[in-house]
């Protein structure tokens, strides 16, 4: 390996520090904002450190509003939608989990066919998948709204789930195909000589061997579903079927909500996916690279 001089190492370390501050800074801002009341925040504006550390913003959120008649420092008023925050969080979990399960199952089936049973039309199928990733979701929203209304799926979690599966499947197929294609065929061939059916070889050999690929695809799908705003925003307007991003979007034009409370919601909204990336980074990295470069 090349050796750097001491001066070069100091400069490189400083640059690293700058990048780390750039990454962590905005996240620290969320944490600082969420642990104090607006009054404390305003008490000494020039000091960026939190003036108090309290969990009351979170307590209010999880309790669905301020309790009793105690002085409410966190918000001059409490938007009606915020009462549904715990439900919205649960909805987001249900949506992201269902979307991940469905996408992985259907994606794995299709990806296996594409990587092991290539015909001319499976190639066309892959190009259709690639192309559909480039369709801006906003183009599809009015037609999807009309269609879901006709099907009676408006304002329902299944409506959100099915729509997201449709939009995330192409990406999943793309990622999984590159994983399956990289697996050696010999094991499958051996199993098939022993009398295993093709589907049996897929379930007993290919799936277990591609566990890292499935994990990568699954965690990426979960994260993208958790992030999705436009679909649930357009497809569900009732509080009962809102997801976390929709609740957050509702606060945007509401000038009376304190930022401190908003940062508490933001922190709860970003925590699941940030933790997932921290824990499963290796898989996320491999999934994202193979989804973009191979194919």
């Amino acid at each position: 390996m090349r050796r750097r001089s001491t001066a070069a190492r100091i400069i490189l370390s400083a640059l690293n520090l700058l990048v780390i501050l750039g990454i962590v800074g905005p996240l620290v801002a969320v944490v600082f904002g969420s642990v104090q009341s607006e009054r404390a925040l305003l008490s000494d504006v020039l000091n960026p450190l939190p003036k108090e550390v309290t969990l009351s913003n979170f307590q209010i959120l999880l309790a669905g509003g301020p309790q009793g008649d105690r002085v409410f420092e966190q918000a001059s008023y409490f938007p009606a939608n915020l009462k549904f925050f715990p439900l919205a969080f649960a909805n987001s979990v249900v949506v992201a989990t269902s979307v991940t399960a469905l996408t992985l199952t259907l994606g794995a089936l299709a990806a296996y066919a594409v990587s092991r049973l290539p015909f001319r039309w499976t190639h066309a199928f892959m190009y259709a998948n690639l192309t559909s990733r480039m369709v801006p979701i906003i183009v599809l929203m009015v037609p999807l709204y009309v269609t879901l209304r006709q099907l009676g799926l408006l304002n329902s979690l299944p409506g959100i789930i099915l729509t997201e599966v449709g939009l995330l499947l192409p990406y999943a197929v793309w990622i999984l195909t590159s994983y399956f294609a990289a697996l050696p065929r010999e094991l499958e061939d051996a199993a098939r000589i022993d009398g295993c059916s093709r589907l049996g070889a897929f379930v007993r050999i290919v799936l277990p061997l591609s566990a890292p690929g499935l994990a990568a695809c699954g965690v990426i799908t979960f994260i993208l579903s958790w992030h999705e705003l436009l679909i649930p925003l357009v497809v569900s307007s009732r509080p009962e079927s809102m997801t976390v991003p929709v609740i957050l979007a509702g606060l945007v034009s509401d000038f009376y909500v304190f930022y401190t409370l908003m940062m508490a919601i933001s922190l709860l909204g970003l925590l699941p996916t940030v933790l997932l990336v921290m824990l499963l980074q290796r898989y996320v990295v491999r999934g994202l690279t193979s989804g973009a470069l191979k194919g």
Partner: peptide
């Protein structure tokens, strides 16, 4: 390095407007 990618876009918007 990957953390900002994990932040939901709408949360990203709100945190920067803060």
């Amino acid at each position: 390095i990957l953390l900002p990618w994990a932040v939901p876009p709408i949360v990203n918007g709100l945190l920067w407007s803060f």
